[in-house]
């Protein structure tokens, strides 16, 4: 493992020659050794991926950290959570991704392909858009959250409801659909404020932040 948690808002990652870390621009706090930071607009996907991500609105300014040393990362006083991906796929919003290893393939996924029309509605309602970023492969990534991160397991028959604003990421075989609980009270502005919930069912894990604040 090359990622270490220093405190709730700071991590340290090792960069070795021949390896690349993709990180959010401006997230570097300090480093030892010889590390260089190069802005990249193609990310880990090449030019085609770049255009795809631009179109999908999942384009977040990234930079590459290369060289030989240890780099400390933190961003805007947000909490940082480390996630190890072991051959499965992590679905996450691009702007929540702070650092990830180049052993992970970054992709862009159309929400409609997971959950059909409801997935698209979900993207609209949560303000996450119609696309989401995926990370596949083996490696570590560091995820930003406002407040601490809670990992909630989902099992068949035990689906979970999540506030769309508190949702960060999910992994595994999960179906997500938006549950609209809109009544006449919401229409006249006397709703509970919890009209929309994200329902996730299947087998996997959901990551939720302890805040309703979007990044």
């Amino acid at each position: 493992m090359t990622f270490d948690q220093l405190n709730s808002k700071m991590i340290e990652a090792t960069v070795r020659p021949g390896q690349t870390l993709y990180c959010l621009r401006g997230a570097m706090l300090a480093y030892r050794g010889e590390v260089s930071f190069t802005p990249t607009s193609t990310g880990a996907q090449g030019v085609g991926g770049m255009i795809g991500r631009r179109l999908a609105g999942e384009s977040v300014p990234l930079m590459k950290a290369e060289g030989d040393g240890r780099v400390m990362f933190g961003y805007a006083g947000r909490h940082v959570h480390l996630i190890e991906i072991t051959g499965d796929t992590l679905h996450i919003e691009a702007d929540r991704l702070m650092v990830f290893e180049d052993s992970l393939q970054q992709g862009t996924m159309f929400m409609g392909s997971q959950g059909g029309v409801r997935g698209m509605i979900r993207g609209q309602v949560t303000g996450q858009g119609l696309f989401t970023t995926t990370l596949t492969g083996r490696g570590w990534c560091a995820v930003l959250a406002h407040g601490g991160v809670i990992e909630l397991p989902v099992q068949p028959g035990r689906s979970i409801h999540v506030d769309p604003q508190a949702y960060i990421a999910h992994r595994g075989q999960l179906d997500n659909r938006i549950g609209a609980n809109v009544g006449w009270r919401d229409v006249i502005g006397r709703g509970s404020g919890e009209a929309f919930q994200l329902e996730l069912s299947g087998t996997g894990t959901v990551y939720v932040q302890a805040s309703e604040e979007k990044l």
């Binding site: 220093l6 405190n7 709730s8 808002k9 700071m10 621009r25 401006g26 997230a27 570097m28 706090l29 300090a30 480093y31 930071f37 190069t38 802005p39 607009s41 300014p61 930079m63 400390m72 933190g74 961003y75 805007a76 006083g77 947000r78």
Partner: peptide, 23 residues
């Protein structure tokens, strides 16, 4: 664009450097 990380303060010698967890 720029990476925003072109400029750092370089510390050498012996002592202690204090950092905060945010830029």
């Amino acid at each position: 664009g720029a990476s925003g990380e072109e400029h750092q303060y370089d510390f050498v010698g012996t002592g202690t450097v204090l950092m905060q967890s945010s830029e």
